[in-house]
Design a binder for these strands. Structure first.
Lengths: 143, 143
DNA sequence: AAAATAAAAGAGTTTTTTATCTTTTATTTG
DNA sequence: CAAATAAAAGATAAAAAACTCTTTTATTTT
């Protein structure tokens, strides 16, 4: 569904949101440990999200990653789009380049319906909305 | 969603179903042309499906691929499973190995719902059920 | 100002996926 | 039986994705 990069990205950002909910920063090391991902790999990913303004960062001691008010309100869809592009939202289920309403693949309509639901789900879910569940250990970001 | 291999596989099998609806065989060359895929690549894929009994084949002149009665009734899900395994049906949206009802990732429940719909769709769609649409040019397997 | 900390950037490497090329085996037809 | 046809099998190559390592830059603390 998503690339590995994108899976890590989402987990990382949810983790950062949770860890910094009362201010503060979290280091790459801690993110990597917190979501059980390769450290240098998640570093690259956060670098890119940082460049695109979807996460915030600060260098030096006391530095690390965090999310400003705007970033906390970004939807999962925004992060998916930033990493995987809109392949997920608009690609053809059978890989046709020109698949469309007027030139549909055999499963175009069925797929559209399911993908729309996926899209609505991703668009309406804010990255900052998982803190409570994680806190209560009703949801997990690793293992 | 699906691997490229799986996309080609589904397109190929739908094509074979259509081309051989009144008996006969279709060659790899024709399949490759018919779905606009690399010839040797689709050959490999059909070879594997043939080994697994999901498509039928015959060597020599007048040989080629076709689908027996049972294969025509296989669902899309069967072909997806044969190529991509059940990753599509049961993998975690965020890539967690141990994601489950009792140890869910933050989007487990939302994902489950969408994936179930995908699964129902794939399970209830027979590979042989597209001939009419294709014939009427209301669906396409290439471009 | 020097030392320490932590992200950014750049340059690889490894693995997996996708694709190609060549040889072999089976079957049919003249 | 020889020639032709078509899939099966095996080996290799190219491209993309996933992951690692090293150096640089910015910031803070002493």
């Amino acid at each position: 569904m998503f690339s590995k990069t994108c899976e890590y990205a989402i987990r990382a950002v949810i983790f950062i949101a949770q860890q910094t909910r009362e201010g503060g920063r979290v280091s790459i090391k801690d993110v990597a440990r917190g979501i059980d991902s390769p450290e240098h790999f998640i570093a690259k990913i956060l670098q890119e999200l940082s460049r695109k303004g979807l996460v915030q960062s600060a260098k030096g001691p006391t530095g690390g990653f965090y999310l400003d008010h705007a970033s906390l309100q970004q939807s999962l869809a925004d992060f998916v789009r930033a990493i995987d592009g809109d392949r997920v939202f608009s690609g053809c289920g059978l890989g046709l380049k020109q698949c469309s309403e007027s030139h549909p693949c055999p499963i175009h309509h069925q797929f559209k319906s399911i993908r729309n639901q996926l899209m609505v789900m991703l668009e309406t879910t804010q990255i900052g909305g998982f803190t409570r569940e994680l806190e209560a250990k009703m949801a997990f970001l690793k293992q």
